[in-house]
């Protein structure tokens, strides 16, 4: 992946958090994923086809999703089903927004959602997989990008 593409993902994520919550998300230094995969409570994966191939995943804690969901739905209750849904919507929004950079032949799948610790997300990810750590409020989450 090119540096400008990584920057594009970073810009998309920061804009997303800022637009919805008006609380900035702070990006850590991106790094290349090794054999170990760090995931939080909920993980959403989007498959990519078309002019690029691979996958993107976003993983976050339950508390981050509850806090973020509060900005969308106010005081409405969010159960685990809603959090599954929210992580899928977040990864869908981040990845879909990247068509602005990659063009309309950057085709995204509907999200696949996983809960709990995942030994390794290898399906569809094309190495090298770049991890972008994100800090929002007191929470940490990250975006993983593995595209040919």
């Amino acid at each position: 992946m090119k540096e400008e593409e990584i920057k594009g993902f970073i810009h998309t994520v920061t804009s997303y958090f800022n637009q919805i919550t008006e609380i900035p998300a702070i990006m850590g230094l991106p790094y290349i994923k090794d054999n170990k995969t760090v995931t939080y409570d909920f993980t959403g994966v989007i498959g990519i086809s078309g002019n690029r191939k691979g996958a993107v995943y976003f993983t976050a804690s339950k508390q981050l999703l509850l806090d973020f969901g509060h900005f969308i739905l106010g005081d409405d209750q969010l159960d685990d089903d809603a959090l599954y849904d929210l992580i899928g919507e977040m990864v869908n929004t981040i990845t879909g927004n990247m068509r602005e950079l990659f063009g309309s032949t950057f085709t995204i799948s509907v999200p696949i959602i996983m809960k709990g610790t995942i030994e390794d997300i290898v399906i569809q990810l094309k190495p090298p997989v770049f991890i972008i750590p994100i800090k929002w409020k007191e929470h940490t989450c990250h975006l993983g990008i593995g595209l040919e």
């Binding site: 997303y16 637009q19 919805i20 869908n92 929004t93 981040i94 990845t95 879909g96 927004n97 068509r99 602005e100 063009g103 309309s104 950057f106 995204i108």
Partner: peptide, 27 residues
């Protein structure tokens, strides 16, 4: 209302009869 933000997608939607296009995320 879509996360697909590229101009070709919004133009295609308008071409097929949509009256508006709101990119996600939205307030």
């Amino acid at each position: 209302i879509s996360a697909l933000k590229d101009p070709a997608t919004s133009l295609s939607a308008l071409k097929y009869g949509a009256k508006g296009f709101l990119p996600k995320p939205f307030t």
